[in-house]
Design a protein around this nucleic acid. Structure first.
Lengths: 125, 125
DNA sequence: TGTGTATATTCTTAATTATGAATATATCAG
DNA sequence: CTGATATATTCATAATTAAGAATATACACA
């Protein structure tokens, strides 16, 4: 009866980090490769991989490889729900905060196909 | 744009602890005094107070005094929603987990009125 | 096979969090 | 005021987490 709350806290801990929250928010819009996340977050690649590892270990994200790129996506759409409710809670305590929607845009300098091929780019249609 | 996610992670961190999750779950049923929580959780009083302090600092719970007793309750019902979604996520990764509903029952040995006065006790009506 | 690119891991140290012990504060009863 | 009870805080230390640096792995392409 106590260990089940250990499991719950393991998942909660994965949320409890600013960079990981941003990653989850980006992934709730669309799957993304590490290079894409790295460019958007403006962090070192190794650091982003570490945070992705934490999310992976917690079971919050799934991974798929496509050639050289590795794409991450939410393992469960309810993770986006948690994120959304957390934002509501935060806004409740401090209405000055802003959580604007994050569009899926091509990132200059990102080598992934989605940022470079017009037909697969999100801004193509 | 980064500091807002700091605020979000502060709230998330408050969730990221087994005892605090149990407290939040108990409070999502009904407000409770520290002695009630202490008895149910079977922890030392100082420890429960510490965890309540973390929840208080995060703005997740509100406090009211009534005589010697201090009653805690959720500051925002959406905290219960976060908890509920977290449980769904946990069950998604491990269906063997059990999160049974927690009834509000009088606790033997708990000195609070709700555990001792028939008219205010939850099992009276 | 060798080179370049994308991603992951390991190691180390700093920072934070967890938690027990002791103690302080606040209220009530007398 | 005094003692008893409910709750909070402070302090010290153990445990965990954060994050940079260096390096390893895996695939693509020539």
């Amino acid at each position: 009866m106590e260990e089940t709350y250990e499991a719950l806290s393991e998942i909660s801990k994965a949320f409890a980090h600013p960079t990981r929250l941003r990653i989850l928010e980006l992934l709730s819009v669309d799957e993304a490769c590490v290079c894409h996340l790295t460019h958007i977050l403006d962090k070192r690649q190794a650091y982003v991989s570490q945070q992705l590892g934490v999310l992976r270990d917690a079971g919050l994200v799934d991974v798929r490889r496509d050639g050289q790129m590795i794409y991450y996506r939410l393992a469960d759409a309810r993770a986006a729900g948690v994120l959304s409710l957390l934002k509501d809670l935060a806004l409740g305590s401090n209405p000055k905060l802003r959580y604007d929607p994050v569009p899926r845009v091509p990132v200059a300098g990102c080598p992934c196909p989605r940022c470079n091929e017009a037909d697969t780019c999100c801004c193509a249609s």
